[in-house]
Amino acid sequence: MKKYILIIEDDLAIIKPLEIILSKRGFLLKIARDGEGAIQILEEKDFPDLILLDIILPKMNGFEVLENIKKNPKTKKIPVIILSNLARDGEIERGLAAGAADYFVKTNFSIYDLVEKIKNYL
């Protein structure tokens, strides 16, 4: 069965390359453009196998979304990888402390390396 990934990201220029490479690797994708949209998708009981989460998002920021995911007993076991360009130690620590499985700074990875890293969590 195909694995299903939820991408929570507002920037279309980031979504597009991710979409192309991940679907080429055979993943099913769903995209939420803001925090509230992501929560809505998760409330539809359409649980993904992995969540890629940006931090700077409209309406509700990534940390809040993560908190929500980890509070809900039905979603708290889904691995969440933070994919952000906030790159300071404090921000990374905060993300991991809130229960993220990993924290990747976008510019630090080629898109191919990123996909390999993501696959480790599936």
């Binding site: 980031i14 390359p17 490479i21 080429k24 906030l86 790159a87 921000e91």
Partner: peptide
């Protein structure tokens, strides 16, 4: 922190786009 984030975002999009373009597939 804000500035590096704001500059990193378009840069990462540009990096990934060109990587895929170079791949040609």
């Amino acid at each position: 922190s804000v500035v590096s984030h704001q500059l990193r975002t378009p840069l990462s999009a540009m990096r990934w786009d060109t990587e895929l373009l170079l791949d040609g597939k």
